[in-house]
Design a protein around this nucleic acid. Structure first.
Length: 730
DNA sequence: AAGTGCCAAATTTTT
DNA sequence: TTTGGCACTT
């Protein structure tokens, strides 16, 4: 290749970037400047660091930093990477362009988008907005009703965005993946059509539109493509396994003819297929760019060998064949621990106590994380932590800007940058007393047809009962339109909104008020309203608790939100059947994705890993239900983890060894298992153990202790008080 | 047409 | 625990 111009050695003065700290393949990646590079690497192998090195190297070779485009999964990841690269090269990397696909799409569309027929005044809507529109359309099209089990708005928006991301027609998608809804196919298609029209008519763009239009821009606008191509000569993509088909196309188009492109990813960490991510993008990459150099990294720099043995064990059972066996040179004799609590509360208490203990022994709280499948799985733990008095930061779940009061305030501001945004109009009008859905819709329709929506609102013939409210609203807009300072805009809005706010949320407005205070702070740091609005949608600020300084705080997070991060000690909770894997995940692709999700969770741990599950859970109707442990735990080899029995012996009902298999307690009949005595058993009795399976009693050793030979697990010495034995035959 | 109160049902993950 | 639908009242 044309390497000659760029053979300069890496700068010696930078401690992080000499040959010793890089392993061989990474170094190769850094010094190969031309042509496509694909890095396939396992968890903890330093993929992201490799990208950083290359950025630093390119800059040191004289590539203008602003011509490097870095596409990462979260905006934070981009910031961090640029910061590190900048440190390597005395800050000359700060001009590198980095961000999420959606963020970059937004930037480019605002710059070049007019050629596609939409002006720069579009508003980005999030998932909740999309669901709101769907709901609105559902009722206006008369698609509700009991006799028709029409899919929920959440399922609908999943289907619509799924078909976009996978680039297949909606009817094919429904027939393939939502066959049980095929009766509603016509209605669903109608809805999709109306949804698309609604967005166009009201100047709204959802996450999918950003990508679709970016792709269109590159394909259809010759001039824009040339300009963008000139602007970015070197493209890099992190977490490539999480890209969808559209994103892969965008990457291909961006790479232009130079093919100066580098992507890194790990197929066993692909956990976003519900969003259209397709890890075959990685497999296809060498076909799209035939001169690709492939680099595989199998050494893990994060976790100890015992943790790696367990995580290797998890993906061993994966049906995909591209998985790797990672090895680590980091020593450690701490086996991952497995704990089964009686119920969720016991599980939460165990975790809280353990964290307290670790903290006393000197582990800072910020080096500990608790991970779970779904946002609400941590409720019980949050309560327990509260009683101990530990501060924590929760990630995942509902975002700050998704709460109703935040949307209310943002609606006013969104209208200032896009007065056609009828979703916001509707929201604001509904706040007025004596104005309900019907009236709001009428007003919105009138406004939408007018050239100047604000004037139309002022001229609208109001009924006497809400005339005053409307007048007040008009007054607000008159004063808002004369302002441009973001701080003042916020103040004015709050003056109007405050009384309504206290009325609408009279039960809990003090709590919500804190959020608004925080929004005020965030907003004041922006000069430009449009940027502020875009940012709050694309990268919502985290909720109130994370505003406090980041001192010694425990992290509670969904597994998805924990991606790419690491902690010394990691707890994975809620590893119960029906909870993790998620109950709706059927066998097949979805099942495999859940497994990879478990893999991602476990690989976050550097030194110590705890896997926990409740044996009993409350179901929706406040009844307790026995559950088994997650099938993914059942598959693990016995030797890769250690069972913990921290429950005091004698507290009946607490299993202290082994765990329940799903089948043995489903009947519920054995809830009050009579205690076995030695008289019940003799040498030769056949017994069944919930974990070890079937076995034969070989020897009665001490009082209440016996040796049993299990068919699958060999000879075990068990105590009658602890082991949950069932006599099959005496 | 708006507001209120009650009952039933649902409940993933995210840029 | 929260949300949505429905019937009933204002």
């Amino acid at each position: 290749m044309h390497n000659d111009t760029f053979t300069s050695k890496l700068p010696d003065q930078h401690p992080e970037i000499n040959r010793e700290t890089l392993n061989e393949p990474q170094y190769e990646a850094v010094t190969t400047v031309n042509g496509p590079i694909l890095v396939i690497a396992g968890a903890g192998s330093g993929k992201t660091r490799t990208l950083t090195y290359r950025v630093a190297h390119l800059v040191s070779c004289g590539i203008a930093p602003e011509r490097i485009l870095l596409l990462t999964f979260t905006r934070k990841a981009a910031q961090e990477m640029l910061w590190r690269a900048g440190r390597l090269l005395n800050d000359s990397c700060s001009r590198v362009v980095g961000g999420t696909f959606h963020g970059i799409a937004n930037m480019l569309l605002r710059r070049y988008g007019s050629s596609l027929g939409f002006g720069s005044s579009f508003t980005i809507i999030d998932r909740a907005d999309a669901e709101g529109i769907i709901n609105l359309l559902k009722s206006s099209l008369g698609l509700t009703g009991k006799e028709k089990q029409f899919p929920s708005k959440r399922v609908l928006i999943n289907m619509i965005s799924g078909s976009v991301n996978k680039s297949i027609a909606l009817d094919d998608l429904v027939l393939e993946h939502y066959a049980h809804l095929s009766d509603h196919l016509d209605d669903i298609l109608t809805l999709q059509k109306h949804y698309a029209d609604f967005k166009i008519n009201h100047g709204l763009m959802d996450y999918d539109d950003l990508l679709v239009n970016w792709k269109r821009l590159l394909e259809e606008d010759e001039e824009a493509r040339r300009e963008i191509g000139n602007r970015f000569s070197h493209i890099m993509v992190d977490e490539y396994q999480d890209t969808n088909l559209i994103q892969a196309e965008i990457v291909r188009l961006l790479a232009g003819e130079q093919h100066n492109i580098m992507v890194v990813g790990d197929d066993s960490q692909s956990i976003y297929s519900f969003r259209g991510a397709d890890f075959y993008n990685i497999m296809r990459f060498p076909k799209v760019f035939p001169e690709t150099q492939i680099i595989k990294l199998e050494e893990n720099y994060r976790s100890t060998q015992p943790i790696l043995s367990l995580t290797n064990n998890i993906i061993r059972n994966s049906t995909e064949k591209y998985t790797k066996t990672l090895f680590s040179r980091i020593e450690g004799d701490n086996l991952p621990k497995l704990y089964g609590g009686l119920d969720e509360r016991a599980e939460a208490r165990f975790v809280a106590k353990k964290i307290e203990q670790l903290h006393k022994e000197g582990t800072p709280l910020e080096n500990i994380a608790v991970l779970f499948r779904s946002g609400f799985h941590s409720y019980k733990l949050e309560v327990e932590l509260g009683t101990i008095g530990f501060d924590f930061e929760k990630r995942g779940g509902q975002k700050l800007t998704e709460s109703a009061h935040m949307k209310d305030v943002l609606s006013f501001l969104r209208l200032l940058v896009n007065s056609r945004d009828n979703l916001s109009w509707n929201r604001i009008l509904l706040q007025l007393d004596k104005v309900g859905p019907k009236t709001a819709q009428k007003i919105t329709a009138t406004i939408a047809a007018a050239d100047d929506p604000f004037a139309a609102l002022a001229a609208y013939p109001a009924a006497a009962s809400w005339q005053q409210g409307l007048a007040r609203l008009n007054g607000l807009f008159v004063s808002l339109q004369q302002e441009s300072d973001t701080g003042t805009l916020f103040e004015l809005t709050m003056q109007y909104y405050e009384p309504l706010f206290q009325q609408i949320y009279r039960d809990d407005y003090p709590k919500r008020q804190k959020d608004l205070e925080q929004l005020k702070g965030i907003m004041a740091s922006y000069d430009d309203l449009q940027t502020f609005i875009d940012d709050t949608t694309l990268d919502p600020p985290e909720s109130e608790s994370s505003a406090t300084p980041l001192t010694d705080r425990l992290v509670l997070s969904t597994v998805h939100s924990a991606k790419g991060l690491e902690w010394d000690v990691v707890f994975v909770i809620g590893l119960a059947d029906g909870r993790f894997p998620h109950a709706a995940a059927l066998v097949g692709d979805q099942w495999e994705e859940e497994r990879r999700l478990f893999y991602v969770a476990a690989t976050r741990a550097k030194k110590q890993l705890f896997l926990c599950y409740p044996k009993e859970m409350m179901s929706t109707d406040r009844r307790f239900k026995r559950v088994g442990m997650s099938p993914f735990l059942n598959e693990l080899d016995r030797g890769v983890y250690q069972l913990i029995d921290s429950d005091p012996p004698g507290s009946s009902g607490y299993a202290t060894s082994g765990s329940l298999s799903s089948s043995s307690f489903l009947s519920g009949k054995r809830r009050h298992r009579p205690k076995l005595s030695m008289e019940d058993l003799t040498v030769g009795s056949r017994v069944k153990h919930p974990f070890f399976g079937e076995g034969v009693v070989k020897k009665l050793t001490k009082p209440r202790t016996l040796d049993i030979l299990f068919t699958r697990h060999g000879l075990k010495s068990l105590h009658l008080d602890y082991a949950k034995l069932e006599i099959i035959k005496n």
